[in-house]
């Protein structure tokens, strides 16, 4: 009878130890999140190839760059409902410089240690300079079609050109052009460098 009592207590102790072990392992299991689910939408784009459409040889020398941002907005008024608004912030870099493809034949003539250069006018090197990847949609209310966005793009481009193609900026680009071109030809061994830059049609 005495042994049965001892066996009972041993069994009870074993049961308690087993329960404790199980509780600990259950806690560890729960800490590992056995069931972890997430419901949602993906924000990443699909994998599509980038196609190189064209390669063009250039001869453009940039002397001044203007990083610009403009905010453009448009409104569509309605009589019986709130107006639609679209506000976008465009970013672009306008590059002023000389396009060597516009040089006349014999634009550079060397005579001994003297070189004479007849350079075309300072101009905007790219017509498309807006980086739409950096465009931010600041506010949108209502539905907007592609034409509205194209119009905003064109307006932003016009505004940036108006702001960048100032007399001061063109003059600054010309000064830098003289400095850089002279440095290049002096590096080539010429002692005297005579530079004539055609007057930009945008300068008054």
């Amino acid at each position: 009878m005495k042994y049965i009592k001892w066996a009972f207590w041993l069994l009870a102790l074993a049961c308690v130890a087993l329960a404790g072990y199980n509780l600990n392992s259950c806690r560890q299991y729960l800490a590992k999140k056995p069931v972890d689910m997430e419901l949602g939408f993906e924000n990443d784009i699909g994998q599509t190839p980038a196609v190189l459409q064209s390669i063009e040889r250039l001869g453009q020398w940039e002397f001044l760059s203007i990083d610009d941002e403009v905010m453009v907005d448009t409104t569509d008024s309605h009589l019986l409902s709130p107006d639609d608004h679209l506000v976008r912030i465009y970013h672009g870099t306008l590059r002023l410089g000389i396009d060597f493809s516009l040089c006349d034949r014999g634009w550079a003539t060397a005579n001994g240690d003297t070189v004479s250069l007849q350079l075309p006018p300072i101009q905007l090197l790219d017509r498309n300079f807006i980086d739409e990847a950096r465009t931010r949609s600041f506010y949108e209310y209502g539905t907007w079609d592609a034409q509205a966005k194209e119009d905003l793009y064109r307006r932003a481009r016009t505004m940036m050109i108006q702001r960048a193609m100032t007399t001061q900026n063109i003059k600054q680009a010309e000064e830098n052009a003289r400095h850089q071109v002279e440095a290049l030809f002096r590096s080539l061994g010429y002692k005297k460098v005579r530079i004539t830059i055609e007057r930009s049609s945008l300068r008054p």
Binding site: L58, G59, Q60, W61, E62, F63, L64, S65, I66, D67, D68, E69, V70, M71, V72, D73, I89, R95, G97, L125, R155, M159, R163, A164, N169, Q172, N176, Q180
Partner: peptide
């Protein structure tokens, strides 16, 4: 239209 800020820098890049 609200005009923001622009940064001007001298360059010497041959594209």
């Amino acid at each position: 239209n609200l005009l923001l800020i622009s940064r001007i820098a001298r360059q010497s890049r041959l594209y």
